[in-house]
């Protein structure tokens, strides 16, 4: 099962992620119960693909700023209000905040799942096969190839600053940090020029076609299972008047 999920071509997995997220987002805010079905479906894939729990937990921390935004909604939303512990809160705001958080969490967990079963190089091939403009994918390829290098340069600058006794504790440190960011830009830009020249020296003559492998009909069907089941959950719930 794990091998099946990992071996699906990336274009199938990206399409499955987008389809699943669209099915989740399509549910109206008052039909919160429908998301239990989505959660079960996603959990099955997470278990089948053996997504590490650490990756899932790390993903949750990304959401924090928008949790604050969601918690602010019950106080300002319009419509009928309810008393909760003596505070007047809008019903629509409460339902909306819950719906937002559940949808955001499901989408995030699905994206973590994709990321943990797809290598970046496969993802780029998958995007090319999904007809994303070649130039955009190429920029993404260069970015992924050099992001570690740029990050390492930043860490070396940090070591050099620390060796000179620099401590960043307040906005007084901003000018020094900003000069480092400026230096980081120069190094990244000049490296880009060198990469371009090296590429020409090797006889570069334009972007190559999509790599990776085309997906078979069977693979597309396997990939469609998750979004189709999720869409079915959304549709049956809505048609049954569950959340209407």
């Amino acid at each position: 099962m794990e091998r099946l999920v990992r071996r699906l071509p990336a274009q199938v997995k990206v399409a499955a992620l987008v389809g699943f997220a669209l099915a989740v987002v399509a549910v109206p805010r008052d039909a919160l119960a429908l998301h239990a079905g989505h959660a079960v479906l996603l959990a099955a894939v997470v278990l089948a693909a053996r997504v590490p729990g650490r990756a899932l937990a790390r993903g949750l921390t990304v959401e924090v700023p928008f949790v604050a935004f969601a918690l602010f909604l019950p106080f300002v939303a319009t419509g009928p209000r309810v008393e909760v512990l003596g505070v007047s809160l809008a019903q629509a705001g409460l339902a909306g905040a819950a719906s937002l958080l559940v949808k955001a969490t499901l989408g995030m967990l699905a994206a973590v799942t994709l990321a943990s079963v797809t290598r970046p190089a496969e993802l780029l091939d998958g995007l090319r096969r999904l007809r994303i403009p070649a130039q955009l994918v190429e920029i993404g390829a260069f970015m992924l190839r050099y992001v570690e290098v740029v990050g390492d340069e930043w860490r070396r600058m940090g070591v050099a600053r620390a060796a000179r006794g620099f401590v960043a504790a307040s906005p007084a440190a901003w000018p020094a940090l900003s000069r480092s960011v400026g230096a980081l830009f120069l190094r990244a830009y000049e490296r880009g020029e060198r990469v371009h020249l090296a590429r020409l020296a090797r006889g570069y003559a334009g972007p190559t076609g999509a790599g990776g492998v085309p997906a078979t009909a069977a693979q597309w069907c396997a990939g469609a299972a998750l979004p189709a089941a999720a869409a079915l959950v959304s549709a049956t719930g809505l048609l049954g008047g569950w959340g209407a």
Partner: peptide, 13 residues
């Protein structure tokens, strides 16, 4: 492509 890719890596960092 190479320059925009490196600038994207810079923005990401």
């Amino acid at each position: 492509s190479p320059l925009a890719g490196l600038v994207a890596a810079f923005v990401f960092a």
